[in-house]
Nucleic acid binder design. Structure first.
Lengths: 148, 148
DNA sequence: ATTGAAAATGAAAATCATTATCATTAATAA
DNA sequence: TTATTAATGATAATGATTTTCATTTTCAAT
């Protein structure tokens, strides 16, 4: 068993067993740079784990998202997409979404400036609305190179 | 017929008839401060327009969104939500979404600072990725007062 | 090692939002 | 008035996600 997830008795009460399907799904999301849907993850893994069911993929994605290890996005194409949450600031990115073809471009420009502003906003909003900010989602949408 | 939408022969080729259902749906979205789903709009209007069908609601929302009069959002609760696009800067706002109960809070703090930064980002991204930015979507998610 | 309880799984069915079909109606132009 | 086109709504189809449930796996305590 490799990787930083070696909890013997679960973690934070989310689950108690770190099983093969869970490992496989998380590892896939850690490696890929894509923003994969449940179906895509299922198709991709089913080749190596023929026993894997789509239901388990959905359940595991929900589990990992609730744990805060991955993030769920809705880009408006009818299916949720998931992304491994990197903790290092250097890998922090936001999205550019083509409203025509659905292509998603990650960009990392300005994230420092953004982050500074975001931090300020978060602090204010937390106080003003008594809201515990857990994360943010910034995206630009429009037409990509091929669609404009 | 009241309001700023009096086109006799359609507008920009999007449609040719400004009908009752279309008027009703747009007017509802103009008046409400909620972020309504298609079903909610349908339920709300069906009382006054018993003949109205859910299909027409979906079609009209799609039409208005393509025209740029309203904006479609996916907050991750499985149904799209729509908002009238105000053009005045003073009404520009972003969203605070509770990941527990789904409540959406509009906030207007920092929008000037945000807008400045956003403008800068947009310009750079347009050049770098040859991407025509049409809009942005900024949201914070976490736990609201009642759910934390 | 054996066993029993709890957790995890996958197939299939159910649900729910959205889209496509199609026959009917309304509006417009000739 | 009539012919044509646009718009509508009921219904069916689709597709993503959830629920149900019987079975299997794992872990802890014998």
């Amino acid at each position: 068993m490799a990787g930083p997830y070696k909890w013997k008795h679960g973690r934070q009460g989310f689950f108690s067993r770190w099983t093969e399907p869970r490992k496989a799904i998380l590892n896939l999301l850690r490696r890929t740079s894509k923003h994969m849907s449940a179906k895509e993850i299922y198709t991709s893994l089913h080749r190596y784990y023929p026993g894997l069911g789509l239901t388990t993929v959905y359940r595991t994605l929900d589990l990992l998202a609730r744990m805060g290890i991955i993030q769920k996005f809705s880009f408006g194409d009818g299916q949720a997409r998931y992304e491994f949450k990197s903790n290092s600031k250097t890998e922090h990115h936001h999205h550019l979404v083509c409203s025509q073809c659905g292509k998603i471009i990650d960009y990392t420009e300005f994230t420092e400036e953004e982050l500074k502003l975001i931090q300020k906003i978060e602090n204010t909003l937390e106080k003003k609305y008594d809201f515990e900010v857990q994360g943010h989602n910034i995206e630009f949408f429009g037409l990509c190179k091929d669609c404009r």
